[in-house]
Every structure is written in structure tokens, then in C-alpha cells.
Design a protein around this nucleic acid. Structure first.
Lengths: 305, 305
DNA sequence: TTTTCATTTTGTCCTGGACAAAATTTGTAC
DNA sequence: GTACAAATTTTGTCCAGGACAAAATGAAAA
């Protein structure tokens, strides 16, 4: 029954876990292996992390998400880390989307209303599918980059995600038609909690006249199977973010393919599976949003009403 | 680098922690002291919890929340636990919400469209706030119960959550007014990924004329602080599901309270904090949706424009 | 070039011990 | 008996240091 919070000057290990997202076990093993962090100890021998070390841990976490390895960065000095951060923001800063500066400013100042208005405006001007392909896809990319570079806080990124949700849900609802075929079940595997890809897929399929049923994120495999066979589903569509381990994706998809009746198609989209088509026989890997439309056309050609 | 999730028959310790809100350390020490839970072991000696034990842990968790002590209940048989639960004041599960049978059928057969139509209809008939208090609250409860009893699959529950999201987001959007004051920032702590409570709170506050900014789930503490001070926020509102460890909630809230300027109010709602007001000085614990309205009124009384 | 195989890295789990905070019981004075 | 202080038990979280599978990397073969 510790109170890890308000050490006179520093944070307990539980508080650091909450703040940085790095599990306690990881914090301890890093200390053992790399010599950082090196928390003080209180009277009872428990770790007390000074604020400066917590800040550095947060920086390390950003670099980790950029693809750097712990052995290279955990032991490095704060100056080296800052240099690394400058160095390789994905080499080529890919042509900021139109109006990027304005949008970034909205996110930085936490102005959700303005952000939503701007998105809504693009949607009306372009139509749903072009909005998805030409605006949302590069924009989401740019937001991720901005976070990696430290130009945007986690809060700013969350705000963006939230507003995209609002706009897309509204668009899907207004397209209304709980129409025809195929009947598509959309979801993600457990541990994949990125819902944006899912929603974008739904927004792509729904106006094409498919009957979309989304289960949100994190449906256990057995339940996907159950829902698909129960609900008269034609296609099960899974979404994978870049952060999902590709091997787990392949393994899970193969298992699911084996358990689903052959009459139900299985589609997989997202960064983690983009290059894996050859390892996934019987599964349609969807490379991007347009390819999704193609997959839909294929299905319809193969299943004349 | 374990994959705790998809054990062919059972859950890894990390999955159980997520599902029950009981920390790993606690699960292990209970096993040592009380002989329960008693998970199987996989080839590598790691704990694999059968579904039945996870269910029992969930039951124990509920009794704990009611103030019973671990030594009385952790070692008890499932029958004893069921009796204790009957006897408890909170019992009163009955009174199935109006139209429950129909709605349950929709969920069981994965008919999202019908479910959404039914919810939408209730919303129109009752108005948003009564819909929240009189329909959605008991309904969400009933869905959870049905899942516990095995009458509803995970997929069915996900379908329900998804449709409620659709309906509420639509309702909030149509209420439009990104109006006045206070300016409320809504989110959850890391590891709390239940978004329904958050959305219900937003749906409660928005039509009352508050300016709501939701960051979705899982915002690190430091980023909540950043967003609140950056964005001209008057109130930070956190939501906690029943599965969130109460101690962590209390500790996190205390830390956040200390870090936020005194001028920014901190509100906390949800099962995990319902009984914790006395441990949370300087924080307004919100008992239910109506109490949220009350908190809003209090704030306005204290801050005349 | 791609594919396969061996090696290193890395995160999460394990055991069993410890101890402070909280809860409960016991003791004492009014 | 009731109120309050002190002693005791209960309980959750932390610690150390070891282990190992999955992932990432690098080398070799096709």
C-alpha cells in the first residue's frame, strides 16, 4: 500500500508508468541493462523518479515509436536524443497536405470545433470517398509525423482522432442505406485498438451499397467467428495499424481463415499486412482505400445476385 | 514478449488484469495466500486462467467494491459469492428495461441497423437527457448482465456499444452549440479504454450549454495537464469504468489535482470512484448523470459570468 | 534481389520476500 | 456503555534477479 504519487520531489514507479506508458517491468529492466533511468530511492528503498528523468523517458518513447532501438537510445544522453530527433523524421517530409498549418494550429490550441468545421468543409467539397483518399489519409499521416517530431502533443493527436470520428460517423449515418450486399463485418483483433482505419473502411464501403456492421475494436477471434456465422455475413474485414506485429496478424488471420466457412470471404487491410499477401492464401489483402473498392467489385463479380 | 491474449483455452495474466481491473501483483498474491485463483500453466510455466476463474474474479471484484474483504470472499465458493451478491444492497438487478427482449434479440442476431433504429426512436421520444438516464443507463447495465450470464456474446456487446456511439455522436452533433461556459475537457486515464461513459457525459453536458472538448480515451496525465492549461479549460472531467482499479484512480486524480492550477476544476465520474469522495479533496465526484447536471449548476453559481 | 537460417535484443513473466497503509480488534478512560 | 487510543491483522504494491519466447537484425544461400 504505497503512495507512489507525491514524493516530495519525484514520482513513484506506478506514476511513471501512467505518465510514460512504459510498464513497470520495462522500467526496471532498462535500469538493470542500460543504466537508465536511475531513480533515487526513498527511505524504504523504493524508486523515486525525478521529473527530468520522466521527461527523458517520454522523449525516448517517441524515438522508440520512430523505430529506433532501445539499446541505441536508452543509454544515450539527452543531447544525443535531441539530435536523433532532429535527424530522421522519415527522411522526406512528405508534402504537407493543403491547409496543414491552419489545421495544426487548431490542434495545438485544442480547438476541436474549428478542426471539425474544417474537416466537414473538406468533406462537403470533395465528397466522402475523395475526402478519405485525398485529405484524410495524408492528414492522418502528417499528424503522426508531427507527433513524432514533438510539434504536436498526444492531446492534439487525440483531438484530431476524435474529430475525424465525429465527421466520419456523421457521414456514414447520412449515407443511410443499410442496403444490400455484400454484408460486411468490420472489426479488429484484440490488442489492436486503432479504430480510425476501421472507420475509414466503413466509410469507403457504405456508400458503395454494402451492408456494413462494425463491432469496433478488439473482438476476440472466437467471437468474430461466432458473429460472422450467426449474422448472415458475406465478408469479414479486419483492420491493422502500423503498430500491430505483422507475424501476429498473419497467424491470427490464418487461424480465422481456417475456422470460417469457405463461403465467407476474409479481407485484411492496413500497414501491418500490406506486404503479406503471399503468406495469406484465401485472404484478400487490401492495399489501400481504392483497392477496397476493387475488392468489392471482385466480390460482386463472383457473386451475381 | 508473450502473447497473453489468444491462449487456445484461457487468458494470460495481462489479459485478466485488463478484464477484471485486478493488478497482476494482486492476482499472484491472492493465489499464494488464499489459493484462488488457481490458473493452469502453459508449457513455459506461465499462468493461464480458464474463463470460469475469470468470471469468478469479476464477481469477487464486484463484492470488493461493495466493501467486503478479500479474506472473506476470495477463498469462498462460487455459490457463497452468489448468495452474498443476492444479499447485498446493490442486488436489485431485475426490472428489465422496456423492450429488452426485442433489443436482446437484435444483439444476438447481430442486427445493428435494427438496434440503432430502436435506440434512435427512444431518443426522439424521450429527448437526449431522459434517454440517457432512463434508457441507456439501465440498458447498458442489462447488456453487461446478459454478457455475464452468457446470454450475450462479446460480439453482441460490441455491437451494442457501437450503435450507442453512433446514436450519441449524432445527438451531440445536432445539439451543435459549441457554446458557452464552462469549457469542459473530457477524457480517461491510460489503461481505461471504456469510452461509453465519456460519451454519455458529453451528451449530458453539451445540451446544457457547456463547451465540451473530448480527447477520447487514454490520455497520459501530463498531456491532460498540458491540454487543460493550453486550451482555456475550466473543468477537466475524467471517466472511470467499473474495471478500473480504484486505487489507481484515486492516486492519479490526486496527482492531477496537485498539478492543475487551482482555477481549473476537476470532476471524476464512474463506478471506480463512486465511493471515493472522501479520499479526493478538491475533486468533485459525480455519482450519476443527474449529479453531473448538479455539478454544472454548482460551477455556474460559483462563477457568475 | 529475395528467402532462409542463426544470433542478438527486448519485453513480459516468474518466485518469494518485504513492508507501509488501511482495517479491525482490543484495551483504557470517561 | 461510549469514545478514543493503541495493538494487531489484513492487504496491496514494491523489490531483486532470473528466465525465456517473440521480434529484430545480420549473415548466408538460392
Amino acid at each position: 500500500m504505497r503512495n507512489t504519487t507525491n514524493q516530495p520531489d519525484g514520482f513513484g514507479i506506478a506514476a511513471v508508468e501512467r505518465d510514460t506508458g512504459l510498464p513497470k517491468d520495462t522500467l526496471r529492466v532498462w535500469e538493470r541493462r542500460y543504466g537508465f533511468p536511475q531513480p533515487l530511492r526513498d527511505a524504504n528503498g523504493e524508486r523515486v523518479y525525478p521529473a527530468a528523468q520522466v521527461d527523458k523517458l517520454r522523449l525516448i518513447r517517441r524515438l522508440l515509436d520512430q523505430g529506433l532501438r532501445p539499446s541505441r537510445i536508452v543509454a544515450a544522453s539527452t543531447e544525443e536524443l535531441a539530435q536523433l530527433l532532429e535527424a530522421s523524421p522519415e527522411a522526406a517530409p512528405p508534402a504537407a497536405p493543403a491547409g496543414w498549418d491552419t489545421l495544426l494550429a487548431f490542434m495545438q490550441r485544442q480547438d476541436g470545433a474549428a478542426l471539425q468545421r474544417a474537416l466537414q468543409q473538406s468533406l462537403l467539397k470533395q465528397g466522402l470517398q475523395r475526402f478519405l483518399a485525398d485529405t484524410l489519409t495524408p492528414l492522418t499521416d502528417a499528424v503522426g509525423q508531427a507527433w513524432l517530431r514533438g510539434e504536436l502533443s498526444v492531446a492534439g493527436e487525440h483531438l484530431y482522432t476524435e474529430q475525424v470520428h465525429n465527421v466520419l460517423r456523421g457521414a456514414i449515418a447520412s449515407h443511410g442505406g443499410h442496403g444490400g450486399s455484400p454484408s460486411i463485418l468490420l472489426t479488429t483483433f484484440p490488442n489492436e485498438l486503432h479504430s480510425l482505419g476501421l472507420l475509414m473502411a466503413e466509410a469507403m464501403f457504405a456508400p458503395e451499397g454494402a451492408r456494413c456492421t462494425s463491432l469496433g475494436t478488439q473482438t476476440p477471434l472466437a467471437d468474430i467467428e461466432h458473429a460472422a456465422t450467426q449474422g448472415g455475413i458475406d465478408v469479414v474485414a479486419l483492420s491493422f495499424s502500423a503498430a500491430y506485429p505483422p507475424r501476429q496478424a498473419v497467424e491470427g488471420l490464418s487461424t480465422l481463415r481456417a475456422r470460417l466457412p469457405a463461403g465467407i470471404a476474409l479481407w485484411a487491410g492496413g500497414q501491418a499486412v500490406r506486404e503479406q499477401q503471399r503468406k495469406l492464401p484465401g485472404i484478400r489483402v487490401i492495399a489501400d482505400l481504392n483497392d477496397g473498392i476493387a475488392a468489392l467489385a471482385e466480390w460482386r463479380a463472383a457473386h451475381p445476385a
